[in-house]
Amino acid sequence: MATVKTQQKILDSFLDLLAETSYAEVKPALLAARAGVKMSVLRDCFPSKRSLVEAFASRIDRAVLDEQAGDMDDQPPRDRLFDVLMTRIDTLAPHKGAVGALMKTMRSDPMLALEVNPIAVRSQRWMLEAAGIDASGLRGQIIAQGVAVAFARVIDVWLREEDEGMPRTMAALDKELDRGEGFVRMLDRAGKLTGLVATAGDMLRRRSRRERDWETDDWGNVVPEEAKTDEDGKTVH
C-alpha cells in the first residue's frame, strides 16, 4: 500500500496538471509520469479521477475545520457560516487554476457535475456543522445542497476577481447567504405546515372512525367493522 506521502504527491501532481491543461486531458499515464509513480500505484491510490476530486475536497475540508477556533460562538449562525466559507475560499486560493479548470469542465459536462455534486454537498454539510448549524437529517441535506449551489456561484465570481481583497467575492457570498436565509425560513414554514396538515388529517381520520365505527386492517386500510349479531344470528345496530 502506498504511503500517505505518495498519495499526497499524486494529488498535488493532479492539481498541477489540472491547472496547466484541462480535466479531460489529465490521463492516467500522464499523471503517473508527473507524480513519478507506477501506474499500478496510481490505480491503487486513486482508481478514478472522481476519487482524486474527492480527495481534494477532503483535503480542503480538513484544512478549513482545523482553522475553526470557536472564537465566533457568540456570533449569529449566518456570520459564522460567512467566515467558514471565506476560509474555504482562502484555502482554495493556491489551487485557483485547478478549481477554474474543474468548474469550466463541469459547466460543459453535466455527467461530471452530477458526479461532483455529492462530494460538494458532503463538504458543505461539514462547513455548516463548523458554523454551528445543524446539518443532520433531510432538512440538513436540503440546506447543504442549497449551500453547495450557492457556493459554486460565489466561486464563479472569485475565479474572475483580481482584487486580493476580494470585495466582489464577499459581496456575492453575502448576497447568497441572504437568499439562503430566506430559503431556510420558507423550508421551515413548509415543514411546520406539513406537520399541521398531517396532524389535522390524523384528527379527522380518528373522528371519522369514531363516527362511522370503522377500524383498520393489518395493512392500514380503513374497513367497516363487521356487523354484530345476537345469539339467533340477527343483526343488531
Rank of each mutant, 00 (worst) to 15 (best):
V99L: 14
L52V: 01
D66T: 08
R59S: 07
D79V: 06
L92I: 09
D71S: 11
D90M: 14
L42F: 01
R62P: 12
L65V: 12
R59E: 01
R50D: 00
R78M: 05
Q75E: 09
A98M: 04
T87R: 15
T105D: 09
L102R: 04
S58A: 15
M103F: 09
L81Q: 01
P77F: 02
P76K: 04
D90S: 15
A69Y: 00
S40Q: 11
A63S: 13
L81R: 02
V99K: 06
E67M: 14
F56G: 05
K38P: 03
P47I: 00
T105H: 10
T91G: 11
D71R: 09
M103A: 12
L52C: 04
A55R: 06
R50Y: 00
R78I: 03
M106L: 08
R59Y: 02
F56P: 10
M106A: 10
R62F: 09
A57P: 10
A63T: 12
D44V: 09
T87L: 15
M39N: 09
I89A: 12
K104W: 00
K96E: 05
D71A: 11
K96V: 08
A63N: 12
A63G: 09
T105F: 05
V99E: 06
G100P: 08
D74R: 12
L81E: 00
M86S: 13
D90Q: 15
P77Y: 02
C45Y: 01
V53P: 10
A101L: 02
D61F: 08
T87A: 15
L81S: 03
D44G: 11
A98E: 01
F56M: 10
I60Y: 06
K104M: 06
T91P: 14
K49A: 01
D71C: 11
E54P: 11
M103L: 13
D66Q: 13
A57N: 07
M39F: 06
D90C: 15
K104R: 11
D71I: 05
T105Q: 13
V84S: 09
G97C: 05
P76Y: 01
Q68I: 13
G97M: 08
D79S: 12
R43A: 07
D61M: 12
E67Q: 15
K104C: 06
V99W: 04
L52I: 01
Q75W: 07
R62S: 15
